[in-house]
């Protein structure tokens, strides 16, 4: 069953093999995203996928949609223009922890604030993989990378909390291990009308694993399995225990007016104002009493 689905959504001819290392979690996320799009029966001709720069952002070249591989940190900015220009198209942003929260942090929080209808699929591997393992804004305090060889002196972002504080209407988290749950979360995110974030912990055995002695991909997936706490079972753990864990599932779901639909109302208001203006101009131009009367009635009907 997997085979025909993949053939249906991947650009098989030109773009393989892909750039992702053996054991990388990003391919799992791509599979999950494809299944979700298929499940929701979104038309491939309409789906727009915008990505930035980094390992995760290379996904756009592999999938058979309208794909826009932009600049480092800017996919949300490009996606904002695209969505506002054609609100009828579903726009998915593919990004990573560095792309979205370091160089692109400003666009990330402001798109969340606007609650523009974008679905952001953020693969968080706590490291810059494409440039060779430098620390990122989500590298834990004390974590290692090629630019913090004896430990990160900085503190990391909690990206989901950041998105919630900035005003995102749907925020969820999963991992490359919890695949069926991830499928469901991406579907929910795609269905939400507003800014939706799905943060996925996606292992990087090549750099994050190596620098932090976390073992191979299987060991890293096992860590996700053992450390993740579904939101529903949060109450089973004490505050102290939760400090060592992370929550997965829907962390925030609060629908509110969406930006592009709000903008449609602005257009309507300006256009009806313009109509009124034109009508009153006609009124002035036309001296006849009866015409005046007619215009008044149409104006009140409006």
């Amino acid at each position: 069953m997997t085979q025909p689905l993949v053939l249906n959504y991947l650009r098989a001819k030109k773009q393989f093999p892909h750039v992702w290392c053996p054991g990388c979690g990003h391919g799992v996320v791509m599979g999950s995203l494809i299944r979700s799009i298929d499940k929701l029966e979104l038309n491939k001709d309409n789906v727009v996928m915008v990505s930035g720069i980094g390992c995760s952002s290379r996904m756009t070249a592999y999938v058979d949609f309208n794909t826009l591989h932009t600049l480092h940190g800017r996919p949300i900015a490009f996606a904002t223009g695209l969505k506002l220009a054609k609100p009828e198209l579903p726009v998915i942003v593919i990004t990573g922890d560095g792309d979205a929260t370091a160089i692109g942090g400003n666009h990330f929080i402001h798109a969340a604030r606007r609650n523009i209808d974008l679905t952001v699929i953020l693969m968080n591997n706590n490291i810059y993989g494409m440039t060779g393992g430098q620390i990122s804004p989500t590298t834990p305090y004390g974590g290692r990378g090629s630019t913090a060889k004896i430990g990160n002196p900085e503190h990391p972002f909690d990206i989901c909390k950041l998105a919630i504080a900035a005003g995102a209407s749907f925020v969820a988290r999963s991992t490359a291990y919890h695949v069926p749950a991830l499928d469901r979360l991406i579907q929910q995110a795609l269905e939400n009308k507003g800014f939706s974030l799905v943060e996925i912990f996606s292992q990087c055995p090549t750099y994050e694993g190596k620098w932090n002695k976390r073992g191979d991909a299987a060991a890293m997936l096992k860590y996700y399995k053992e450390t993740a706490v579904p939101v529903a079972s949060k109450s089973r753990y004490s505050e102290e225990e939760l400090k060592e864990k992370f929550l997965i599932g829907v962390l925030h779901n609060e629908p509110k007016p969406e930006f592009t639909s709000e903008y449609e109302k602005i257009i309507e208001k300006y256009q009806s104002q313009l109509e009124m203006k034109n009508m009153s101009r006609e009124k002035v131009e036309d001296e006849s009493e009866t015409k005046k009367q007619n215009d008044k009635t149409t104006a009140t009907e409006d």
């Binding site: 900015a77 490009f78 904002t80 223009g81 969505k83 054609k86 198209l89 402001h110």
Partner: peptide
Amino acid sequence: MEDEIGSIGAVLGASVAG
């Protein structure tokens, strides 16, 4: 937009949309 980097990004996104 939030800055000029975002502005040119949004402009190019809209242009890609036609």
